[in-house]
Design a protein around this nucleic acid. Sequence first.
DNA 1: GATTATGTGTCAATATATTTTCAGAGATTT
DNA 2: AAATCTCTGAAAATATATTGACACATAATC
Lengths: 292, 292
Amino acid sequence: MPLTNPTATVRDLIREHYATLTQSERKFANSLLENYPAGGLASITIVAENAGVSTPTVARMVQKLGFKGYPHFHKSLLKELQAKVSGPTQRRENWVSDAPESHLLNRFSQAVTQNLSQTFSNVETDRFDAAVRQLANTDGRLYVVGGRITRALADYAFTHFQAIRQRVTHMTSSSATWPHYVLDMVEGDTLLMFDVRRYETNLQNLAKLAAERGVTIILITDQWASPVTAHASFTFNCWVEIPSAWDSNISTMMLLEALIAATQEEKWPETRDRYERLDELFDLTRLFRKFT
Amino acid sequence: MPLTNPTATVRDLIREHYATLTQSERKFANSLLENYPAGGLASITIVAENAGVSTPTVARMVQKLGFKGYPHFHKSLLKELQAKVSGPTQRRENWVSDAPESHLLNRFSQAVTQNLSQTFSNVETDRFDAAVRQLANTDGRLYVVGGRITRALADYAFTHFQAIRQRVTHMTSSSATWPHYVLDMVEGDTLLMFDVRRYETNLQNLAKLAAERGVTIILITDQWASPVTAHASFTFNCWVEIPSAWDSNISTMMLLEALIAATQEEKWPETRDRYERLDELFDLTRLFRKFT
DNA sequence: GATTATGTGTCAATATATTTTCAGAGATTT
DNA sequence: AAATCTCTGAAAATATATTGACACATAATC
């Protein structure tokens, strides 16, 4: 494992040894990776301070990485930088990343960033806040449902909302069971729906039934808007196009996480309590597993 | 003349003052410009030696440029470097929306952008491509598994990979069933694992067993790296910190989608065929539903 | 719940870097 | 060609960085 390949960059070395690093050493490692390589080019005193650790911690860590001492590490970083700049034909231009412009990763990340920014700037904060208040309202039940692809997102939403508040139900993707859930829905309940193309008629029917019973529907859909919009109190559109045959759900995920984060903040410190109790329970579960 | 424009780079300063520099000072200036900025980031002793001049010469020159002393000059160069690296990321913060700076949505999106860029720049394209080739290899089976939180991601991965290639298995999150799967694993199979903190011992055990059977493990984890790393052939670290009590999985999702997209591209037009047949089947299903 | 192991920061020592001072080498002027 | 001026690097003085030793805190183990 510790190859100590002579051409390995400091970044590589950190990755390689990350598992063996201690907490504060990782603190420094992260600080360096986040601002690479500048974060390691000042004096040990300064970089340690910037990372919020003591100088010996930095000294110990660079030794773990295989350097003789901080100056050796410093020199190595400098050489890397030099190779990058003065190297023949800008050696793979790995300043920000080592991916060539045409590589799929690059095209992909560009599309994603575009999507996120589009999605984000299309959210009205007032509407967002109102939706969050609805999600935080535990007087009514919260139902979560998704389609074929978005089932995973619904699942993710369920896992997190369940940690934040009580009375959450994940409606399985099998639409045969939905009528049972609808039967119990009452005014004041909330239905969080995911529907991206190809839009599913079942979800539309479900939305209609729920709306008729006075349920508040929060819809997360794509930029072309699912027909469920007609029944929804809150609709959020997410930009999903990427260079591929299918649609990306990263912006969808972002919006969902933002809703979760906001709901959690709204219900703090109630949520804090739940988290702590949850943690205890997990610990118990883990103990139990030891005997299986 | 000495504008001392706050945004002026050291390079600019040198050009501006070049006329007033003495012979050896120019010697150092040229040495620095030829290897910029690395040529000025070591200690004054070293850079002076590299340029073939004495230390006082360097010290005097940087003072001529308007710096208080060599350390000041050094710090300034570092800041420049830092700005260059974080530049593209920061520039994306022109996400002018009507949201006030302090609104959660804004803070959230900033954190997410940061995470994505961080994650992205830590992926080596070679490793990425190799992992994709492994994922596209249909000689062996592809197993997908996640933990408590990442189960949703594993599900998402399964749904998409199933559309792209045959022989995909989603290992349920209930670890009790895992031995059955392991029993059938053979060399050449691939295991796509998700493990973010808190890392689950079950996943670690699973990884060990699979690795022993010659299975290639592709691990998607967070920036702190799951212990599964030890058994994995390919590890991808995703930055996950957001202003909340839990970790974000947006960058995780991005990496997953990128892997899916790349795998699809690798196997095109084979995949195209599958997609078309899949679509037909969906249509049939939909028709069928009409009569229920 | 006591005990060990591990990690962490404070402080002191040692080493290194930076600046200042100063004397000599070249260039320029008288 | 002598006198002066400017530039330059050697060396001392000063400041700062680096490392090692130690003690405390925290986590893991029994």
